[in-house]
C-alpha cells in the first residue's frame, strides 16, 4: 500500500476518515467503519452531500432497492441512510402504522435508541413510511394464507 496514494484519496473527506487510514487489515477497516458510521452519522451525511456526487448519481440505485426490500421511492437514499444504520430494513418493512404511529416509533428511537434528530428529513421519512407501510384493517383474525398443499402419507 502506497502512503501517497492514501493521502490523495483523503483530499475531500474529513479528519475522522483520516484517522481510519491507519487501518490496513480489511476486517479492522470494516469494523472501524461500522463504528464510525454509528457514532458520527450526521457528519457522514454532511460529507456525502457536500463533497460526494454519489448520492443520486453513481449509486447503483436499483440494486440497493432490491437488496433493501424497501419500497421504491425518489427519496430512498434518505430513508435508507436514516432508517437502517442500527437495524436492518427488514424491521421497517415488516411493520405497519399510520403517520402518527411511525412518528411515535421515531420518537421512541430518539428517546431510547440514540436515533439522531432527523431535521428536514423527518417529514420525507414519515411521508414515505405512511404511504408505503400503512396499516390495513385485517379484522379480528385473517384467513389462513400461503398454504402449500402436500399429500399426508398415512
Amino acid at each position: 500500500m502506497q502512503e501517497s496514494d492514501i493521502l490523495k484519496k483523503l483530499g475531500q473527506i474529513t479528519q475522522l476518515l483520516v484517522s481510519m487510514m491507519s487501518v490496513i487489515a480489511l476486517m479492522i477497516c470494516i469494523t472501524v467503519y461500522a463504528v464510525y458510521f454509528h457514532r458520527n452519522h450526521d457528519q457522514n451525511v454532511n460529507v456525502a452531500s457536500k463533497d460526494e456526487p454519489t448520492d443520486s448519481d453513481s449509486l447503483p440505485k436499483k440494486a440497493v432497492l432490491d437488496i433493501a426490500g424497501l419500497a421504491d421511492d425518489p427519496n430512498i437514499e434518505i430513508i435508507a441512510t436514516n432508517c437502517t444504520a442500527c437495524h436492518s430494513a427488514k424491521l421497517v418493512v415488516q411493520n405497519r402504522a399510520t403517520r402518527e404511529g411511525w412518528k411515535s416509533m421515531i420518537q421512541w428511537m430518539q428517546k431510547t435508541q440514540n436515533l439522531w434528530d432527523l431535521g428536514k428529513n423527518e417529514d420525507i421519512i414519515l411521508d414515505y413510511l405512511a404511504k408505503n407501510y400503512a396499516p390495513e384493517n385485517k379484522g379480528r383474525r385473517v384467513p389462513l394464507q400461503n398454504i402449500e398443499w402436500y399429500e399426508l402419507t398415512p
Partner: peptide
C-alpha cells in the same frame, strides 16, 4: 455495492476508505 463508475461505495454514498486496495 459497486457504483457505475467503479468506485466502491456504501449505501449512503460514502466512499469506502482504501477501496482500491
Amino acid at each position: 455495492t459497486k457504483s457505475v463508475a467503479g468506485a466502491t461505495t456504501t449505501m449512503c454514498g460514502l466512499p469506502v476508505v482504501f477501496s482500491d486496495n
